[in-house]
Design a binder for these strands. Sequence first.
RNA 1: UCCUGAGUAGCUCAGCUGGUUAGAGCAUCUGACUGUUAAUCAGAGGGUCCCUGGUUCGAGUCCAGGCUCAGGAGCCA
Length: 493
Amino acid sequence: MYFCGSKKYTYMSQRTKIKALLQSQQTDIDVTVKGWVRAFRSNRFIALNDGSTNNNIQIVVDFENTDPALLKRITVGAAISVSGKLIASLGKGQTVEVIAANIDILGDSDPEKYPIQPKKHSLEFLRENAHLRFRTSTFGSIFRLRNSLAFAVHQFFQERGFVYLHTPVITQSDAEGAGEAFHVTNFDLNNIPKTDTGEVDYKQDFFGTSTNLTVSGQLEGELGAMALSDIYTFGPTFRAENSNTTRHLAEFWMIEPEVAFNDLDDNMDLAEDMLKYVIKYALDKNPDDIEFLTQRLQEEEKQKPQNERSEMSLLEKLQFCLDNDFERLTYTEAIDILKESTPNKKKKFQYPIEGWGTDLQSEHERYLVEKHFKKPVILTDYPKAIKAFYMRQNEPDAQGRETVRAMDILFPGIGEIVGGSQREERLDKLEQRMDEMGIPKDELWWYLDTRRFGACEHAGFGLGFERLVLFVTGMGNIRDVIPFPRFPKNAEF
RNA sequence: UCCUGAGUAGCUCAGCUGGUUAGAGCAUCUGACUGUUAAUCAGAGGGUCCCUGGUUCGAGUCCAGGCUCAGGAGCCA
């Protein structure tokens, strides 16, 4: 426990973290190190890890002069404390090692029962052991990177004077229509109060109304931006969609900046700057983890046929992303490119491009990003009919086609990582659109008030944090980049 | 939710057209060895073949239904 007060507490009693030991310029010094045993070889060499880095420190045990009963308890997964001398390593493979003078077993780990072995495990198996998977090199690296990215997000916005706004997790309506919401209720589900007409009587529920978990903080975010100018949210978001993919979670973290007086171009600049900033931060802060995951991905790609392997390594992909401007084009331009594309002409698309107005399929987005431009792409000005009610309407073009000021950022291997728009600030246009789409205006009276009192141009976007972590770690399944994933048929841990 | 594939030892997997006692590598245990890096060598233990039902003299294998997982699609971030 760490207390603030008149007395000073050291919260790491004489323990040196392994990251610091491995970087130590000094040798022949006495140290104490604590961690979990990753491997114990030849009764002599302990690979010890404490999570401060993906590298282990080697502990050398004088087994001939150590109690055999103690040696038997140095098993994979055990927590131990070692004090001894840090020396330049006598063997190859590491620069320094600790010659153990004293070893304490802090917590035993029964080798017959401990599931994590010093070998390759499948990601599926580790997902079933999510409580222990932090102890593997891969997941250690993933969650250190996730931490760095989260911190970098805050630092990016804080440096620019944004206000971190906490939007509610429990909301009254699913007005945005951004997917199915989870209901929140305090009713006894075996005895739900009904009205005379047989409908659920929400008046008797905790909030006196039907409530659910938030599907987006955007609408509340806009309220903040209409006074604080520049805000962002960063919190959990919930969707009850029955999505079974490598890119969807029922509980995920979303970053949603909302900026007054910004138009769509400003919005795109902000999103691109932010993505580059946080990726650069991760590269600078966690080079060892990126390096490890780069190698992991290379090993994994060796299993694939040649034509499915990616041209760039993970490290190269991240660097490439920093060094190049994202390609910006309109939906209409994208349709023209797709129409003229080889796969479309050769009828290789499962959904051929037939005309203007329908939404792009995953295969089309992948073609644009991975084959045509070979870099991140920002698509703008989508057809009005396929986008949300709050997006600002453009003037119809010469052919009478109606679009809105939307933007989607598409990343290689991930697809849509950011979705955003300039918002419709004109009350009449907004109300008309809500009527057309059947959005209840009375429930959103507070949202419409921002258009009644001091409305102004503004824009924002939503970034799926796990999709960003997917990209930076090079992992293939979104369930592996959040500590305890929530998805259909699974809420374990 | 749809399509495809999978479920066999703690893990990763093999098991052919149904046929005695279901196999391998790694892990574990015992012993040997001791500057190892996925240590090595010898031996041992370890199975509800996902579940339920069916066909058959006989089912890990065939059929039906279900459950779970993976990949792809849809929805989206």
